[in-house]
Design a protein around this nucleic acid. Structure first.
Length: 338
DNA sequence: AAGAAGCA
DNA sequence: TGCTTCTTG
């Protein structure tokens, strides 16, 4: 998913503690999707309340956000608006893959293949209106702002770092760098572990920070040239050129300077090229207000425990941690955030 | 994904 | 104290 620039980027190991005091924008769909696919019960199904409503995203958002707050990191969640019209091909491909997986899942169920059922069902997720709305409700209760993007959430989240209102974007996707995100934080969790899709095993993945300007000067290119590299290797908005990965694209752009010369010399056709470049260079964004409020502790208990069957003792323990940190912050920063 | 429990 | 395994909803 998204552009893959991993092989040419400098990454630094980081931790929540290293980012204490910063405000980060979070690509909400990106992490909700991760939570839905990885927070699952023994049966391989997502966690659900007694009414059968899925709650994995609420668990993920509540516990991870609490960890951030405990480390004095303030998240601003950014939700997707309408997808960029050039994304339709990517979305079509994804829904085809999903349909294929649904068929495979039916076969696996018919043949009672538990491992396969688990692995396939973790890959088939639906982010419904309910899931989005309940996520927003929880964020409200936690006193956290969220922002509605006009188009891609990554674009808006990246713009907010460009403007200097947040320090970094929390996202797995390198696309944010093309949108101008000053820094991206990947695998941004406490323990740095991740479940291997469809299994019960976990691998250790360290949180890492990628700094846009550091990388641009290291590569000796501009952001526009990084966008060219992304487009040559493929983005959500174009398929990319067969046989050209990040390293090849980099050397082509360094040699010929811009993508127009490269496609002319190599006789490559890229549809909607100007429009894609423009979309990355000037990410569409809405106006926003970033305001943090005191968490509504009783409201959170009602919502998570009363409505969605979370364990009250667990939720309370987590709320106590936030509360301690809130008081500490409240005293030391003299109402700066409130 | 993240917390808790079990175990060395 | 750090690792693995189980539970969470």
């Amino acid at each position: 998913m998204g552009v893959n620039l991993s092989s040419i980027l400098i990454k630094h190991e980081t931790s929540l503690k290293d980012n204490s005091g910063s405000i980060v924008s979070v690509d909400a769909y990106n992490i909700i999707y991760q939570f839905l696919s990885s927070i699952r019960g023994d049966d391989g199904e997502p966690l659900k309340d007694s009414n059968g409503n899925i709650t994995s995203h609420l668990s993920g958002i509540f516990y991870r956000t609490s960890n951030l707050l405990e480390n004095n990191i303030k998240p601003v969640y950014v939700f997707d608006g309408k997808p960029f019209h050039l994304k339709s091909e990517t979305l079509r491909e994804r829904s085809l893959i999903k349909e294929k997986n649904i068929m495979k899942l039916e076969e696996a169920i018919a043949s009672n293949d538990d491992a396969k059922i688990r692995s396939l069902s973790s890959r088939i997720n639906y982010i419904t209106d309910d899931i989005v709305n309940e996520s927003k409700t929880l964020l409200n209760l936690m006193g956290l702002p969220y922002v509605q993007a006009p188009s891609e959430g990554e674009a808006q989240a990246s713009y907010m770092t460009l403007k200097g209102d947040v320090n970094a974007v929390v996202s797995q996707d390198y696309d944010c760098l093309l949108f101008g995100a000053k820094r991206i934080l990947r695998n941004f969790t406490v323990y740095g572990r991740r479940r291997i899709a469809g299994t019960s095993r976990t691998i250790n993945v360290n949180p890492e920070i990628i700094d846009l300007n550091e990388n641009l000067s290291n590569l000796g290119i501009s952001r526009e040239q990084l966008i060219y590299i992304g487009i040559l290797t493929g983005t959500d908005f174009n398929p990319g050129v067969k046989g050209i990965g990040a390293k090849t694209a980099l050397s082509l752009i360094k040699k010929y300077n811009d993508i127009y010369s490269v496609i002319k010399i190599k006789n490559i056709g890229i549809d909607n090229l100007d429009e894609i470049i423009e979309f990355f260079m000037n990410p569409p964004h809405n106006d926003y207000e970033i305001k943090f409020n005191e968490p509504d502790f009783d409201g959170i208990i009602d919502f998570l425990c009363g409505k969605h069957n979370f364990s009250e003792s667990r939720v309370n323990e987590t709320l106590e941690k936030i509360s301690r940190n809130y008081k500490k912050d409240h005293q030391s920063s003299l109402d700066r955030f409130f």
